[in-house]
């Protein structure tokens, strides 16, 4: 009986941790590398290729009722309740030829990908700007200032370039 209580508590903790990760860290750690790899391997492709469709789409954590969790030998049986709903919008990065399309991607991730391509380090002076989610396109064959000029067109975004740095202010 004691073992069973221990397992339930551990399960509760794990589920809490997973749901926090889903809401706070929608992109996998190596997604930038995935994008760069895919960009390199699909240069001649004529089709849009999904590179990173992450964040589990429209995620409906239908208020997983922890009280209703039952541990079985075969696994976990979850009974969802309809009390709470968390909707996380899909974040996608797609490539077609030399064009990368970012949909609902945080500025932080976007600049990291762009910075890697042009060999620049990204610095955020304004931490809040990391979390601005953007829809935009980037031509990987164009000079860096093209995407930066476009992003600077937004009132909320201010990015400066130096020799080796992309600085978000």
């Amino acid at each position: 009986m004691n073992d069973r209580r221990y397992e339930d508590a551990a399960l509760r903790e794990a589920l809490g941790r997973i749901s926090n990760q889903i809401e706070q860290e929608p992109l996998p750690e190596d997604f930038e590398q995935q994008v760069m790899n895919r960009m390199a391997s699909t240069k001649s492709s004529r089709r849009w290729t999904l590179v990173a469709a992450v964040s589990i789409g429209v995620l409906m954590l239908s208020g997983i009722s922890l009280a209703a969790l039952q541990l079985r030998n075969q696994g976990v049986v979850k009974t969802p309740s309809s009390e709470t709903h968390h909707v996380v919008k899909l974040q996608t990065i797609e490539t077609k030829d030399s064009i990368v399309r970012f949909d609902n991607v945080p500025l932080d991730s976007l600049l990291t990908i762009v910075g890697k391509h042009y060999g620049r380090t990204v610095i955020f002076h304004n931490e809040q700007s990391r979390h601005i989610h953007l829809y935009t396109k980037w031509d990987t064959t164009a000079p860096l200032n093209q995407i930066i000029d476009r992003l600077n067109g937004f009132e909320k975004v201010s990015i400066r370039l130096t020799d080796n740095l992309i600085i978000s202010e």
Binding site: K89, D103, I132, H133, L134, Y135, T136, R150, F154, K156
Partner: peptide, 8 residues
């Protein structure tokens, strides 16, 4: 044209 916007 290319449309860009702040999605959130």
């Amino acid at each position: 044209y290319d449309i860009s916007f702040i999605s959130d």
